[in-house]
Simulated assay, not measured.
Amino acid sequence: MRKVYEVVILFLFSLGPVSSMVNWYVQSPKIVFGGHVTLFCNTSTVRNSCKGCPTSWFGGENFKVLSYNGFTASSSKYSLTTAADGFGITIKDFTENDLIYPYKCSYGFHSFVKHLTLDKNYEYQPSKDEIKTKHATYNSMLYVEVHLKKAHPEPNCTAIFNKKDITSELNNSSRQIGLFYSVKLRLNITIKGYSCKGRLQMLCRIGSKNLRVFDNYVSYTCHDVLITTKEMKKYPVILILLPLLLVLLLPCVCCLRVKDMRDNILRQCIQW
């Protein structure tokens, strides 16, 4: 009988807001995609008149039950909190899909529903798969391109080569697609003045975090032939083998010269 009663109450809760004496808000200081976001239902105005009333959250796809009286529909996605003035639900691994639907908190017969929206203070840090890099050299020039597929807010990036700030050489182009920015960083500098080697770093400030989007030690041979990163891996081997080949060939050259001298002496003796 109690289960039937709870189901009836739960059904009534899901019909819509009965009053605005409770309300929920985003308790997290900011929404960070990939992180945890907590919604808090404030029940302070009705707390004394509804002691022991059941609590619940609705939302997500098909506006389903997310929690009821301390139990969640999915512990891997949601967790619950309680306080003297209300109760909360934490959405784990927050994604764009969590923004699509409205959320509703209910306390007894009091409930409040609204869509979860973003203000300007939200962050999206690109994953490793969302950062693409490529680089090469040509005619003593180093070319680097970094593509951040998704980021927010707009990144503020710097470039450092051998501890020298070369941000002025960095070309930054970005465009906003939906909620996020797509950013391309391009760098084209001569490395002849650095003996064609050194450490190149690109750092981007995205919201509250610093992200290292490129960090590579450049060691190229400066000439007019295009050398890619893959090809450069062969050069250390060549540099090791070249002296060995010279050492092996030197005795052969000497022997040939001695043989030539001996043959010349024999020919002269025969002529006499």
Rank of each mutant, 00 (worst) to 15 (best):
N23P: 05
V18Q: 11
G35H: 05
I31P: 00
T43D: 06
V32H: 02
K30G: 05
C50Q: 07
P29G: 03
M21F: 11
M21L: 13
S28Y: 01
S28P: 05
V26T: 04
F13Y: 12
P29W: 06
S20N: 15
S49R: 06
G16V: 04
V18C: 12
S20L: 15
S28F: 02
F40T: 03
N48Y: 11
T38F: 01
P17E: 09
Y25D: 03
V18Y: 14
G16Y: 07
S49H: 05
V22N: 05
T38V: 11
C50V: 09
T45G: 09
P29V: 04
S44K: 09
N42S: 13
C50P: 02
F33G: 00
W24N: 01
V46N: 09
P29F: 04
V18W: 15
V37R: 00
V22Y: 04
S44V: 04
H36W: 13
N42A: 15
R47H: 05
Q27Y: 12
V26S: 05
H36I: 07
V18P: 12
V26K: 06
G35R: 04
N48R: 13
C50A: 14
N48F: 10
N48L: 15
N42I: 13
P17V: 11
T43E: 10
V26W: 04
S14Q: 11
S28A: 08
V22P: 00
R47N: 11
H36A: 14
V32L: 09
M21T: 05
I31C: 00
V37G: 00
V18S: 14
S14K: 13
T38I: 13
K30L: 06
S14M: 10
F33K: 01
P29M: 08
K30N: 08
T38P: 02
L12Y: 09
S19H: 10
N42V: 12
T43L: 09
P29T: 03
Q27H: 12
S14R: 12
S19I: 10
T43M: 08
V46R: 07
F13S: 07
S44G: 08
F33D: 01
C41Y: 01
F40Q: 11
K30T: 07
L39H: 03
C50G: 10
M21I: 09
T43P: 05
P17C: 12
V32T: 06
R47I: 15
L15N: 04
V32F: 02
V32K: 03
M21R: 13
G34W: 02
Y25G: 01
S28R: 01
M21N: 06
N48A: 14
V26I: 15
G35M: 09
F40A: 08
G16R: 04
L15A: 12
V37M: 00
R47E: 12
V46T: 08
F33Q: 00
S20A: 10
I31H: 00
N48D: 13
V46E: 10
T38Y: 02
K30V: 13
S49F: 09
H36N: 14
T45L: 12
W24P: 00
C50S: 15
L39A: 02
W24L: 03
L12S: 08
M21V: 14
F13R: 03
L39D: 01
S44L: 08
V22L: 06
G34V: 05
L39I: 10
V22E: 03
L15H: 04
S19E: 07
F13N: 07
G16Q: 05
S14L: 11
S49W: 03
T43K: 11
C41P: 00
T38D: 02
